[in-house]
């Protein structure tokens, strides 16, 4: 079953465009949504939440069209944004009391469990919570209203390595029973190397590729060769960097030929992002 099904979403802004964005997230898995700042991650997420009107396209959550079942589906979607501040002078307890009224399936028992698990102090003000705690609080809220799809926009931004690792462990714990699915946007790709099952890569408003993480990485190769070999392969490279030892470039695995006799390795997510960004620069 698909937790999230995005089909051909288009949206034009004066100086930015989402072009035919499509990708699917299977229930019970973590999908990393990567792309440089301004590539369209947040716009896509806003489209999912019906916060922005699409020019065309459809978004289905658990098989239901978001446009027709927004109210019902929002009960099942939990949303957390890293670094977002709402009602910061308010106490955790007071904010929860207001929020829970909006959800038909709110469960106080679950809420208590997660407060304890995340060591959240209800009597603290939102402003007094650390960045990581704020994300945990959003997750506690989402789980208490029975969210089955978590949409996390840059949840790890601004976190120290310890807090980040802790949060990633929490995410993995959440999908462990296969009921909860997570869409996780980030530009910190190291977060995803371990915990993501699928990767969707957006670049300049278009989905470059969406797929299982290892397959995603293996669909590219990082080539190392001498400067003299560059001309031979230049046209096929997505982009390359020169250094005194020769060049390093990213290529689609399908475009690579063994006869070239160059060192080829599977790139990391970060390398893929970096070389795609370089491609953009080259056109400017």
């Amino acid at each position: 079953m698909l937790a999230l099904d995005i089909r051909n979403v288009n949206k034009s802004y004066p100086n930015f465009q989402l072009k035919n964005v499509s990708f699917q997230l299977e229930k019970g898995y973590i999908m990393g949504f990567i792309g440089a700042n301004g590539a369209g991650k947040t716009t896509t997420i806003k489209s999912i939440l019906n916060m922005t009107r699409m020019d065309s396209g459809e978004i289905h959550v658990f098989g239901k069209n978001m446009a027709n079942h927004e109210f019902e589906l929002k009960q099942e979607i939990g949303y957390a944004m890293g670094g977002a501040e709402f009602y910061t002078r308010c106490k955790v307890k007071a904010l929860t009391d207001v929020i829970k009224k909006f959800y038909a399936h709110w469960d106080d028992e679950t809420y208590r469990i997660y407060l304890r698990k995340f060591k959240l102090d209800e009597n603290k003000r939102i402003a007094e919570l650390s960045t990581g705690m704020k994300v945990k609080y959003s997750i506690a809220i989402a789980l208490s209203h029975g969210a089955k799809l978590l949409i996390l926009d840059e949840p790890t931004s601004g976190l120290d390595p310890v807090a980040r690792d802790e949060l990633l462990d929490i995410f993995q714990g959440l999908v462990a029973d296969g009921e909860i699915s997570i869409l996780f946007s980030t530009h910190i790709t190291s977060d995803l190397e371990k915990c993501a099952d699928f990767i969707t890569f957006i670049e300049d408003g278009q989905i470059v590729r969406s797929g299982e993480k290892e397959e995603f990485k293996e669909s590219y190769l990082l080539l190392n060769g001498a400067a003299t070999q560059l001309n031979q392969v230049k046209d096929r490279l997505i982009s390359y960097k020169m250094n005194s030892f020769g060049f390093t470039g990213l290529i689609l695995a399908g475009d690579y030929e063994h006869s070239w006799n160059m060192k080829a390795a599977t790139p990391s997510l970060e390398e893929i992002m970096v070389y795609f960004a370089k491609k953009e620069d080259a056109y400017v």
């Binding site: 109210f71 019902e72 929002k74 709402f86 910061t88």
Partner: peptide
Amino acid sequence: AQNDLMFTSVLPVA
């Protein structure tokens, strides 16, 4: 200042 618009638009409300 409290980002009310974002806060509210995430809630299940029309």
